[in-house]
């Protein structure tokens, strides 16, 4: 049963990645501008028609898009993502450099968002009507309506410019040893911005679930019959975790989207910033590579969330029989 479920999920993940790559490939080619011109960089105006044609022929840009996509797909399946137009290095190598940074940012922010929101949301939800309960509702609206990029600029101007205690951008000291602690110092600002703008709304969501669950019939029945408060609480939290997990799953794609902005703002050397850069320079192989990798990260995160849901919720495991 479980093996079958995992297999099905993996198949779905592969299909999603195929669709994502297909769509991005076509959107990229439909976008204005010519990759052959872009390849020439700043001197594009000196490019004559013959030269342009030559570039197009060499890179097979004159072939139909479907054929181009086909050969890209075949090479990708072989593990070859091509060579970056701009950097002249294999795309895989560039992605390998960037991936740890994005995973670090994502992992750290997700960890603190989950820990913080579970802590706040549980306390607030369990004590309906308390100051924390009402306070969290207001706080969550306030923090989630602050745009991350604006808060980022504010943080930079305060912590980096005024106080000068934290670096404003980058992933490590230039010419430094690039050790873990060095990176951590650079991580503080972007991570704080993402955590601060997300933790409130996550906590609020959990809080509302807990309050809804506490009003359920079975809770009253259990309480009326002297089931211990500890058991009741455990039951409420368990059931309130399903929609919360679902919510995390739903926000993960937009989470990666949002981190693109924050990564660019703080020049965080991750996949988000790389994606923007490759769009601007029309570096197609690199763009396809980073989109595919981000897509894979989303698919894997969703798989983990789904697996958690599946193992926690007996209704899902039993196929929702009534």
């Amino acid at each position: 049963m479980t093996v079958k479920w995992i297999g099905k999920r993996m198949m779905m993940g592969v299909v999603v990645l195929l669709v994502v790559s297909f769509l991005s490939f076509f959107i990229m080619h439909a976008a204005p501008g010519d990759p052959a011109t872009a390849f020439y960089g700043g001197n594009a105006q000196t490019l004559n028609a013959a030269e342009k044609e030559r570039i197009s022929r060499v890179f097979s840009l004159d072939r139909p898009i479907t054929a181009q996509y086909g050969s890209w797909l075949v090479e990708t399946l072989k593990g070859n993502l091509g060579i970056s137009y701009k950097e002249g290095r294999p795309v895989i190598t560039i992605l390998r450099e960037r991936l740890p940074n994005t995973l670090l940012l994502f992992g750290v922010t997700m960890f603190f968002i989950i820990v913080g929101s579970v802590w706040l949301g549980t306390i607030a939800g369990m004590k309906a009507g308390s100051i924390l309960d009402k306070g969290l509702s207001i706080l969550s609206i306030a923090t989630s309506s602050i745009p991350a990029f604006w808060l980022g600029i504010l943080f930079i101007s305060f912590f980096a410019v005024k106080l000068g205690v934290l670096p404003s951008s980058g992933t490590g000291e230039i010419g430094g040893e690039g050790g873990f602690w060095d990176k951590l110092r650079y991580l503080i600002l972007p991570a704080t911005v993402i955590i601060f703008t997300h933790v409130g709304i996550f906590a609020r969501f959990l809080q509302e679930n807990i309050k809804d669950e506490s009003r359920k019939y079975y809770v009253t029945v259990a309480r009326a019959n002297g089931v211990t408060e500890r058991e009741i609480r455990k039951g409420i939290l368990h059931n309130a975790s399903f929609p919360y997990l679902n919510y995390i799953g739903m926000t993960i794609p937009s989470f990666f989207g949002g981190s693109i902005i924050v990564e660019s703002l703080f020049s965080w050397n991750g996949l988000g910033q790389l994606t923007i850069k490759s769009v601007v320079t029309k570096d197609f192989p690199l763009l396809m590579g980073s989109i595919l990798l981000i897509g894979m990260l989303v698919v894997i995160s969703l798989f983990i969330i789904d697996f958690l849901m599946y193992s926690l919720n007996p209704k899902l495991r039993k196929g929702g029989v009534q």
Binding site: Y217, Y218, H238, P314
Partner: peptide
Amino acid sequence: NSFNPSVK
């Protein structure tokens, strides 16, 4: 609805 749906 008298029982918690996710506990045996």
